[in-house]
């Protein structure tokens, strides 16, 4: 395993990081202390863009390990976790200083992960070896590995932390894993290339997007039955371009946002009636989604147009798009 292998260019990274940290410290003085920040992983630039939530400008670009993809934050918002897929590890950054705090082992080719609601442990999907790796974020110890289907990707965890859902792209399954036993309790077949799993806050639904299938399956976690299969139709957009990936559901559980990839749209869906309320035009190949901490905004990463779009959640309107690095993949916003 290469997870603990130190990177080959530590000194350079360190230099860059300390320079960035100094810049960040200056900026912290300049801007309002409470302004939210959006961290965006740029897959092809091997960087992370930091966008100031007030000015909506990129305030810093942090050099990361190679091919940063999945990105998330600790519950208190102080730490940023990034999967650096080609470096086979998870990097942990301080969200205030933008400094690399530590690295965690991840297993090979980590793509997406999810933190336990308590903030520990971290569940990581290893795209290359069909495993979910469970890592203690405090000790950096691998706690367990759960074998799943081929090309695991999407990771969702129930609000109570008891159920983990992993999707495997090639097997086209959502694997329901009991976090107490780390055993798969059920496999639910969904449409082709499932990408993301997202629980509703009341634990009554889990949404699984299928990129190639073009659908989102809404599964009842209690019965493991698909209660609804959402399809999308956008006038003027071909069916092949509609590739659902990122899914986010508001804390009140009422509204889901589904990123539709090359359709360049985000669907706004009512989670009770499953009616699609609106399609929001964003940048090209919209991939992942992130809410602002107060959920007043939704950020979308647009992989082909190299920007993020900002959605005003109250009015369901796209207000602005901000250029970041090349191929932005995921985003997370912290206070």
């Amino acid at each position: 395993m290469t997870t603990d292998a130190p990177p080959r260019r530590p000194s350079r990274t360190a230099r860059l990081l300390s320079a960035s940290a100094a810049a960040a410290a200056l900026l912290a003085f300049a801007g309002p202390a409470s302004a939210e920040k959006i961290f965006v992983s740029n897959e092809r630039d091997h960087t992370m863009s930091v966008v100031d939530g007030a000015t909506l400008k990129v305030v810093e670009t942090i050099k990361t390990g190679r091919r940063p993809r999945g990105i998330t934050a600790s519950p208190d918002g102080k730490l940023i976790y990034v999967c650096t897929s080609d470096d086979n590890r998870v990097e942990v950054y301080d969200s205030a200083t933008h400094k690399l705090v530590k690295t965690l082992p991840s297993g090979p080719d980590p793509e997406l992960f999810v933190l336990h609601p308590s903030g520990n442990p971290l569940y990581i999907a290893n795209e290359d070896d069909n495993m979910v790796t469970i890592v203690d974020v405090n000790t950096g110890q691998k706690l367990a590995e759960v074998p799943v289907g081929v090309e695991p990707e999407g990771m969702g965890i129930s609000p109570d932390g008891k159920t983990l859902v992993n999707t495997s792209e090639t097997t086209s399954m959502a694997h329901f894993i009991d976090t107490a036993t780390n055993q798969i309790v059920e496999n639910v077949v969904v449409d082709s290339r499932p990408r993301v799993a997202e629980f509703r806050s009341d634990n009554k639904q889990v949404w699984v997007s299928a990129e190639v299938g073009g659908t989102v399956s809404v599964i009842d976690p209690a019965t493991h039955q698909i209660v609804k299969k959402l399809t999308f139709e956008i006038p003027g957009v071909t069916a092949e371009a509609i590739q659902p990936v990122g899914v986010k559901i508001t804390k009140d559980g009422k509204t889901a946002f589904v990123a539709l990839g090359p359709a360049n749209r985000v669907a706004v869906v009512d989670t009770e009636t499953f009616a699609i309320k609106k399609y929001l035009l964003v940048g090209q190949r919209v991939w992942q989604l992130a809410f602002s901490p107060d959920e007043s905004r939704l950020y979308t990463t647009n992989g082909n147009s190299n920007d993020i779009s900002i959605v005003d959640v109250a009015s369901d309107k796209v207000t602005k798009s901000v250029t970041v690095g090349r191929s932005p993949w995921g985003a997370v916003a912290v206070p």
Partner: peptide, 21 residues
């Protein structure tokens, strides 16, 4: 416009701040 909505090149030009239909 409905027929052409998808074929317009996607680029943000002032005064727009994001992609527009």
């Amino acid at each position: 416009a409905a027929g052409f909505r998808a074929t317009l090149g996607v680029s943000i030009i002032p005064p727009y701040e994001t992609y527009v239909l």
